[in-house]
């Protein structure tokens, strides 16, 4: 392999700053999108598991629509297509006056996309609580809301923590797709370093290490939450 390694690039100005800005942007986009995804996804998941008829059709449609179109295309749709379809004034505002439109769009697109995945996990978690629990809750006189709040959701939460951990990890990775609409997150910054210095592998290595560190930290944190909230007994260990 014929490549002149120069790790010094990573600590030179402005490349070090670029990396730092990239990390900050990746964290900001991911965490903001996660707040949307967790809130909206949990809501849709709960409604979907309890509803029937039109409401269930609506939640199901949301889930299917957002899961069956590539995230990259969803970003393009929000960024290029939606402003064209809105009334002229709103479209112009989105294009001209919204500060950092690419960042806001990326957060919204990533948040709505991930919400559909969170909804699926929450609905599956509720469904996996044994039927007897719902009957027992009703038998002891709880209302539907009480049954969910006091009996079903606390159990579903514990079931849902591991898959949600993996969704949380995925959102950091998926935030890289925001580079296609011009968000300078971590991957975009490393690509920029590659094209300025031709020392791409150093930059890619740095990004890889950062992503792995994020993954390790999230996994560790979630393992602690899982352990703290697990129900004692042989079945809780899974």
């Amino acid at each position: 392999m014929n490549y002149a390694w120069n790790w010094g690039v990573l600590v030179q100005s402005p490349y070090l700053e670029w990396l730092g800005q990239g990390i900050a942007m990746t964290l900001a986009v991911s965490i903001a999108a996660w707040i949307i995804a967790l809130g909206l996804g949990t809501l849709i998941g709960i409604v979907h598991s309890g509803a029937s008829g039109m409401v269930r059709f609506a939640t199901g449609s949301y889930i299917n629509l957002f899961r069956n179109v590539p995230l990259l295309l969803q970003m393009f749709l929000w960024f290029f297509v939606v402003p064209e379809l809105l009334p002229k004034a709103a479209g112009t505002w989105l294009k001209r006056d919204l500060p950092h439109p690419e960042v806001v769009t990326a957060i919204v697109a990533l948040g709505l996309f991930t919400a559909s995945r969170v909804a699926v996990q929450v609905a599956a978690g509720i469904a996996s609580v044994p039927r007897g629990q719902s009957m027992a809750a009703r038998a002891s006189g709880f209302s539907t809301v009480q049954a969910y709040r006091l009996v079903l959701l606390p159990q579903a939460f514990r079931i849902v923590v591991p898959p949600l951990t993996s969704e949380f990890l995925t959102i950091f990775k998926n935030s890289s797709i925001a580079l296609t609409i011009g968000v300078y997150e971590l991957t975009a910054q490393t690509q920029k370093i590659q094209s300025f210095t031709y020392q791409g592998f150093e930059a890619f290595t740095a990004a890889t290490v950062v992503y792995m560190t994020i993954a390790l930290m999230v996994t560790t944190l979630m393992a602690i939450i899982e352990r703290k909230t697990s129900i004692p007994g042989p079945t809780a260990r899974g």
Binding site: K173, S176, T187, T190, F204, T208, Y211, M212, I214, A215
Partner: peptide, 12 residues
């Protein structure tokens, strides 16, 4: 591989 975005893997 599971910790890293596919885009970065493609660049690599």
């Amino acid at each position: 591989f599971r910790a890293v975005p596919l885009i970065l893997v493609i660049f690599w």
